[in-house]
């Protein structure tokens, strides 16, 4: 009897083990635990972590390839990109010799892949087709996040420790201009109408609105202390702003450039992902090792999911539009 019971338990354990490795049919959210050097895979239906595996040193940000076939994890200290299956979250291959990739993005024309090296004060431009290096551009100090104009003429980079944004001309692949902004600029976001750059001023409590063609700051939208990062709601109108010090998420109207709403999210909210149906916002809480799931109808947290240390990037394939 006892032996039988143990055997049954063993079968259950083995079954769970296989289930965790291959979550068949599950919708998977990918979370980067930057200080643990791991990826957490979360079943978006059950809100449970089904797998955690090592991916590389200091994975901070992630994004899909231009054809959505792969999910790219930028492993900063491993100097590589790790390609995941965006559905299962499993590793497919690695792209080596990518120097200290922190924040990454493809230009809208799909010609360039740009990687910011926050730690080493540089922006590296790669050919998007094969990730071969095209140009390494010094960018003092602390190039953090990046955004593009629709025509792919410029990549705009926040220089976190210089209190500036820098525009890099993608044709000449050289800095075109810089513009002073507020203290410690972090996230940067292009409005859907291609008119304004929104800059999260992390050292203060506002989002700075930049008319990039006129190269001037035109407005400050107070969102909360430590305004940090952006994510589109997917309706072409609203954008979420994470306020890391204020422990809140603000909603900004990208047409009127005004604050629409704000709700609390604990633990240093950072990167965000929105479900395709627009009902849920997932937020990484850097300082409490959790991912928060917010019901956007009630603006309340419905789930807090434990993950690894310093969770940063978050992604799932069935996300809302990026505008």
């Amino acid at each position: 009897m006892h032996v039988k019971s143990m055997f049954v338990r063993l079968l259950i354990v083995v079954g769970l083990l296989f289930a965790s490795v291959a979550p068949a049919g599950a919708e998977v959210a990918v979370v980067l635990n930057s200080a643990d050097e791991t990826v957490s895979l979360i079943d978006t239906n059950t809100y449970t972590e089904i797998q955690r595996y090592p991916v590389g040193k200091e994975p901070h940000h992630l994004m899909a390839t231009t054809d959505d076939s792969h999910l790219i994890v930028a492993s900063a200290l491993s100097n590589e990109l790790v390609m995941l299956d965006p559905v299962s979250g499993q590793i497919i291959r690695r792209v080596p010799k990518i120097s200290d990739p922190y924040q990454i993005a493809f230009s809208p024309d799909k010609k360039w892949f740009v990687a910011n090296s926050l730690r080493l004060d540089r922006v590296d431009i790669y050919n998007a087709a094969d990730f071969s290096i095209a140009k390494r551009i010094p960018a003092p100090k602390a190039p953090s996040h990046l955004a593009f104009d629709r025509a792919s003429q410029y990549v705009f980079v926040t220089l976190q420790d210089a209190n500036q944004i820098m525009a890099i001309d993608l044709k000449t692949q050289s800095p075109a201009w810089t513009l002073p902004v507020g203290k410690t600029p972090a996230g940067i976001w292009m409005t859907p109408d291609d008119k304004y750059l929104l800059v999260g001023v992390m050292g203060s409590n506002y989002v700075e609105v930049i008319d990039w063609r006129a190269r001037q700051s035109v407005k400050k939208i107070v969102t909360g202390d430590g305004a940090h990062n952006f994510q589109a709601r997917g309706d072409g109108r609203q954008v979420f702003v994470s306020n890391r010090v204020d422990n809140s998420i603000a909603i900004v109207d990208q047409q009127t450039l005004t604050l629409v709403d704000k709700f609390p999210v604990p633990g240093g909210p950072d990167c965000m992902e929105v479900s395709r149906d627009g009902k849920q916002l997932w937020v990484t809480s850097r300082f409490i090792r959790q991912v928060q799931v917010v019901d956007l109808g009630t603006k309340k947290i419905v789930r807090s999911i434990a993950v690894g240390r310093s969770p940063h990037g978050v992604f799932f394939k069935t996300h809302a539009a990026r505008q």
């Binding site: 410690t184 992390m202 430590g226 010090v245 240093g268 850097r286 300082f287």
Partner: peptide, 14 residues
């Protein structure tokens, strides 16, 4: 935050 050193937040956390 008060000293304008928010850029060192992760370092401070570590």
């Amino acid at each position: 935050f008060a000293l304008g050193l928010t850029t060192y937040a992760e370092l401070g956390f570590d």
